[in-house]
């Protein structure tokens, strides 16, 4: 370790440090990160599919999805590029609701999105009430650059796992790394264990 004598913290003092994972800083903005152009899928063309190692694949249209019970949740989010944003408010459908009617032995899931993005996680992480498909942020429809019309929200993992423009989940018996996971980012991505990159 090298000390930088003239370096001083400009960390916000109005934030409870216990809510900020190691190596993160709190921002009030909402940075945007994505690997390519922003897809623009109108809700009329949008569907959500659960497929793969399941008893039967299921697909919801936009209207069917919006008729499912939804909830508004307030969570902290943590991006691997070091920013965290506290008390973000989202509205959407719990993945517990979407996966409830599906029988599977699978333990892994690969989420897939418009534009070809994918990300993987254990099925257990999204089927126990800790993950949502969200269509609104702060009470307004989710903007395309933030993943609209619908993105995944898995706030207990780094935010690249909360796939933007999500179109479905592939349930898998074997784990399959997603887009950033293949480019050296951590397979699981727990911000509290600072699992940013492979091997962390």
């Amino acid at each position: 370790m090298a000390l930088s004598p003239n370096f001083h913290s400009r960390r916000r003092t109005d934030v409870d440090p216990a809510r900020v994972p190691p190596g993160q800083y709190v921002t009030s903005g909402f940075p945007v990160l994505s690997a390519g152009p922003t897809p623009k899928t109108p809700p009329a063309d949008w569907t959500f599919t659960v497929r793969g190692a399941v008893d039967r694949p299921r697909t919801w249209t936009w209207d069917e999805f919006r008729n499912l019970p939804s909830e508004t949740i307030t969570v902290d989010i943590h991006c691997v590029t070091k920013w965290s944003k506290l008390d973000t408010s989202w509205t959407g459908v719990s993945l517990e609701t979407l996966l409830g009617g599906t029988r599977t032995q699978a333990q892994h899931v690969l989420a897939f999105s418009d534009g070809g993005y994918t990300t993987n996680m254990p099925l257990a992480d999204i089927s126990d009430g800790r993950a949502w498909l969200v269509y609104a942020y702060d009470g307004a429809p989710l903007a395309p650059e933030h993943g609209g019309p619908v993105r995944l929200l898995v706030p207990h993992l780094y935010f690249w796992k909360s796939a933007k423009w999500v179109r479905g989940l592939e349930l898998r018996n074997q784990d399959e790394p997603g887009f950033w996971e293949r480019y050296g980012y951590h397979n699981y991505g727990d911000p509290w264990r600072e699992q940013r990159y492979t091997g962390d």
Binding site: S28, V32, L33, G36
Partner: peptide
Amino acid sequence: APDLIRTERFGGTGT
């Protein structure tokens, strides 16, 4: 083609 376009975004704290 969207698949030939790669982007990298930054800008401090973002908006």
